[in-house]
């Protein structure tokens, strides 16, 4: 449905905004490398079922997300490594990995490799933006492109919420994916303060600065 398609394209747009920023400005300053690595982990653990993906739409997006994320990590770790400042990217990702790992082991739908990794990926994605938001907090401001990147990334999962509501009411056979919905709501909440600042500042064409 439209919400999900808009969400997936918003996700894709966020990746291209980020790629554009890094290549245009020849710098990955202001971008959290840790968050990008977490997203890489999210895609790998979620798309283990890539080979037998039924819908071509999903297949294409999965390939796009994995390949573009690999390229972003290459750019940040190799091509533009000098512009990477690890002293600003100091969030303890082990807490996030522990959080996702624990929930994946406690409440998977089924104790199979695929399902446990899938649950891990969903929970990890819900908190993967924290290093990036933490870095933003520390620097106190961000380039407009970085703000647009985070906004598009936040919008993607936010749009999945109406998608789930729509599916709940329109597809009688649809069972609510409680893990995805819970994590999706948590993820969107984590973006809420960013969205507020983004809306009040950037929409007025001002530079993105924390109050």
């Amino acid at each position: 449905n439209i919400f999900r398609v808009l969400g997936d394209f918003s996700h894709l747009a966020s990746i291209f905004i980020l790629l554009h920023k890094i290549q245009q400005l020849k710098s990955c300053s202001g971008i959290s490398f840790k968050s990008q690595v977490l997203y890489m982990l999210v895609y790998i653990t979620r798309y283990l079922d890539l080979p037998w993906t039924s819908s071509p739409y999903n297949f294409i997006f999965k390939v796009l997300f994995i390949s573009s994320e690999l390229y972003i990590i290459y750019l940040m770790a190799r091509a533009y490594k000098p512009t990477n400042d690890p002293n600003l990217d100091t969030f303890h990702v082990e807490f996030l990995l522990g959080f996702a790992g624990l929930l994946a082991l406690l409440f998977p739908y089924k104790y199979t490799i695929l399902e446990v990794f899938w649950a891990f990926s969903i929970w990890l994605e819900s908190v993967a933006i924290l290093p990036q938001l933490f870095m933003l907090q520390r620097t106190g401001e961000a380039e407009a492109m970085t703000a647009h990147y985070i906004a598009a990334l936040g919008m993607y999962r936010a749009l999945y919420i109406p998608n789930w509501i729509y599916r709940y009411f329109s597809e009688p056979t649809h069972k609510v994916d409680t893990i995805a919905v819970t994590a999706g709501i948590l993820q969107t909440i984590l973006y809420s303060d960013f969205f507020w600042i983004y809306y009040t500042k950037v929409m007025r064409g001002e530079k993105f600065k924390l109050p």
């Binding site: 999900r4 996700h11 999965k62 999945y160 069972k175």
Partner: peptide, 10 residues
């Protein structure tokens, strides 16, 4: 029963 047969969302 939770939806399990493969996840149809990204």
């Amino acid at each position: 029963k939770e939806k399990v047969q493969g996840h149809d969302e990204l």
